[in-house]
C-alpha cells in the first residue's frame, strides 16, 4: 500500500464530513425536538475528530487548539445544560 499517514488522515476527515452531513440531515428532520438536539452531540465528537485530522493532514498545528477549545466548550455547555437536572432537587419548568 502506498499512502502516507497524512493522506489517510485527510481521507478519514472527508469521510467524517460525509457522516456529519448525513447525521445532520437526520437531526434536522426530527421528528421530535429532542432529535434535533442530537446535532449538539455531533459537533462535539465528529466535529472535533475532523479538526484534529485536518490539523495532522494539513500541517496546521493550531487546529489542534481549535479542537481542544471546541471539546472544552462542548463539555462546559453540556454540563450547563445538565447541571440543574443533575444537582438540583426540584424540577423547575424549563419549557423554553
Amino acid at each position: 500500500m502506498n499512502f502516507t499517514s497524512a493522506e489517510l488522515a485527510l481521507a478519514v476527515a472527508l469521510f467524517l464530513l460525509v457522516n456529519l452531513g448525513a447525521a445532520l440531515w437526520r437531526a434536522a428532520r426530527g421528528p421530535t425536538p429532542a432529535d434535533r438536539m442530537l446535532a449538539a452531540l455531533l459537533f462535539g465528537s465528529t466535529g472535533t475528530g475532523i479538526l484534529v485530522l485536518l490539523a495532522f493532514a494539513g500541517g496546521s498545528p493550531a487546529l489542534v487548539d481549535v479542537a481542544l477549545t471546541l471539546a472544552l466548550l462542548a463539555a462546559i455547555s453540556g454540563i450547563a445544560f445538565a447541571q440543574r437536572a443533575w444537582l438540583g432537587k426540584v424540577e423547575e419548568d424549563d419549557a423554553a
Binding site: A34, M37, L41, G44, A71, A74, A75, A82, A85
Partner: peptide, 14 residues
Amino acid sequence: LALIASAAVGYSIA
C-alpha cells in the same frame, strides 16, 4: 472532554 460533553448532553436530551 468529549466524554463529559456526551454524557451531559446525552442526559439532557434524554
